[in-house]
């Protein structure tokens, strides 16, 4: 086990250095770099949503709203208050966490479709509020955001998200969340405070997607309320379902694959969305449980099969 962890650590550092070198020397052209950043942000969004939908079994669709909170709060801190980037990202995430508690407490009493609709509504409310706050530019949003997200920050925060959520899931607290998903009545009668764990998973998920929002804002120069429409929540949900509800590595692979698919299909013009949708339908028909089901990609499996790219190395984190 120890040796395995060491090997994973080395692989992670090698991958980091390789990409760092490639971007600095222009081996990866800027267009592809955009996708690299999108992959990182999508991984964070998908893994954090998986904690809520996959592990705790609460179908919540307000993820884009929390991403918006993280993005706006962090931008206010860096642009208007002149605070350092790291502080801004963490403050954005903390704000999303608090909003997560506020929204989670009333809505998580609901189940299934009702919860989905209520959280969808709350996500839209956040967007509408931003539309009407002149301080953050209203519907026009904020532009001229300094490009502070670099490869190092992206890599650190992506790894941190996976590491923390993996640690959470593989613990008595994580098992409590899974027990809520499996059988809420039994969980409650076995001494699990189900409301607490539902809200906890929900707000931890909000925290990390808040980080994703902050990274997004400080890479793409411009944020508008329209950026964080419910389509963003659905994108994350697609990745979670595609990767497997309850599989962290599945979410990572799916986030990479979906980002890659979107980029590769860009030349097809309007046909792009049709092909994308068709691919998803085909995948769901042949693997309804998602790529990984509830299983994790472990170190052994990694060496048995062939997984390309650094995200696969990241997956090894779950193997210990």
């Amino acid at each position: 086990m120890k040796r395995e962890n060491l090997l994973i650590g080395i692989l992670l550092i090698v991958f980091y250095a390789a990409v760092f070198f490639a971007t600095e020397t222009g081996l990866i052209p800027p267009y592809y770099q955009v996708n690299l950043y999108l992959m990182g942000i999508n991984i964070i969004a998908a893994v954090s949503l998986n904690l809520i939908v996959g592990f705790t079994g609460q179908l919540a669709l307000g993820h884009a709203g929390f991403m918006a909170v993280g993005a706006y709060i962090s931008v206010i801190l860096t642009m208007k208050l002149g605070q350092p980037f790291l502080l801004a990202v963490l403050a954005g995430a903390a704000a999303a966490f608090l909003v997560g508690i506020l929204i989670g407490l009333p809505t998580l009493r609901l189940k299934g479709d009702y919860l989905a609709i209520a959280t969808l509504g709350f996500g839209e409310i956040i967007r509408r509020l931003l539309d009407n706050i002149d301080y953050v530019g209203g519907a026009a949003g904020i532009n001229g955001i300094p490009k502070l997200t670099n490869w190092t920050w992206l890599y650190i925060f992506t790894l941190l998200t996976i590491f923390i959520i993996k640690n959470f899931v593989n613990s008595t607290h994580g098992r409590a969340c899974i027990s809520v998903r499996d059988n809420e009545i039994a969980a409650e009668t076995m001494g699990i405070n189900t409301t607490y764990y539902k809200v906890l998973a929900f707000s931890i998920g909000a925290f990390f997607v808040g980080i994703a929002g902050a990274l997004y804002a400080h890479y793409f120069f411009l944020i508008q309320p329209a950026t964080f429409s419910f389509m963003k929540s659905f994108d994350a949900l697609v990745m979670v379902v595609f990767g497997g509800l309850g599989s962290i590595t599945g979410s990572v692979i799916a986030a990479v694959a979906v980002t890659f698919m979107n980029a590769a299909l860009i030349n097809f013009g309007t046909l792009r969305m049709v092909i994308y949708a068709l691919l998803l339908v085909i995948i769901m028909v042949f693997r309804p449980q998602g790529l990984m089901g509830t299983k994790e990609l472990t170190f052994k499996r990694l060496f048995g099969g062939k997984e390309r790219g650094g995200s696969a190395n990241v997956n090894d984190k779950t193997s210990d």
């Binding site: 098992r175 499996d182 969980a187 001494g191 509830t294």
Partner: peptide
């Protein structure tokens, strides 16, 4: 009403959570 997706061991461990 067991926690179906969890292992036998984890089912028991959950009850000791509190």
């Amino acid at each position: 009403r067991l926690f179906d997706s969890l292992s036998v061991l984890d089912n028991v461990k959950i009850a000791s959570h509190w």
